[in-house]
Amino acid sequence: MTRLVYIEDAVAAHPRAQRILAHFAKATRVHCSRYSEVFNPRAQNFRLQKSDPALLLARKLNKLVLPAPTGYAIGGLNNYYFSHMLNCVYDCRYCFLQGMFRSAHYVVFVNYEDFAQAIDGVLAQHRDEDCWFFSGHDCDSLAYDPLTGFAQWALECFAARPRAQLEFRTKSTQIRSLLARPALNNVVVAFSFTPQSVHAALENKVPGIDKRIAAMLQLAHAGWRIGLRFDPLIYSEGYAVDYGQLFERVFSDLPVSSVHSVSFGAFRLPRDSFKTLVNLYPGEPLLAGPLNTDAAMVGYRDNLETELLEFCRARLSDYVGDNKLYPCQP
């Protein structure tokens, strides 16, 4: 239950901010001039804040759309991301956001219209070419949707821009806005999965696998293009059985024709983020594993990583073929 909402003065009267605030009638409202005054100061502890994060309503002023990191592509040449939100309502122990942000508060940028303008700017740079826009880099695209109304806005925005391809990336089951309208063929709804043992140990507050599969199937049957994201892959001695069972569970009822793309990548974190996570959770076994901690990108030692990736690639290829498979590694 959000007890405190910080509101940038500039968005206090914004209709979207007002709509969101209506959900928090009992919360204390704190006005600020820039969200960064609350979100960015040093000496904050992400782990402590995760127990009861506040909400910040803000306006994204610049860098609204950025080039996507390498390894993000799912078949497109021009890849960008934009974030209507920072942080996530779930709490996955491997999540790189914990190492990236000092605060666990949820920031919602309510000026969606400015994102549309920035998207148009990118499209104008790539005349006659498709461009991909990923919306789940700094948050889960849909988990907070009942409050943010992001999906409905994004669908309208992308319906009017056929050259723009949108990816929602989610571990949630918040699909009402998508089911409420006909499927768009320039939108991919990508669901992330890990095996049951990983989900139980590391994905705090994330809906169960079966619930997510059910949501995914509903969307597939409604004609939406589905993405599958097996990233991060988590190594265990029983990985072959665990991932074998997971893939079987995910693909058993899903028509391959609905699958737009399947991407996969082993657990990895930039070294600075990794160090931050170890400081936050020194007792977390995942971070105490056989990792190559000297590398700029910390990941499993080479043999483990290769073994895991090769196994998953082969199995996934059996289900969807090679042409829909995208390794996430840069």
Binding site: R3, L4, Y6, T28, V30, C32, E37, V38, P41, Q44, L48, Q49, S51, D52, P53, A54, S103, H105
Partner: peptide, 27 residues
């Protein structure tokens, strides 16, 4: 205090209230 304003310099801090569940907050 969910915000502390230095009246002279106008510098402001926002003490996180995540652990302050038992008491209402104010500027």
């Amino acid at each position: 205090a969910h915000s502390v304003l230095d009246g002279a310099s106008r510098q402001r801090w926002y003490p996180p209230q995540v652990l302050m569940r038992r008491v209402a907050s104010g500027a």
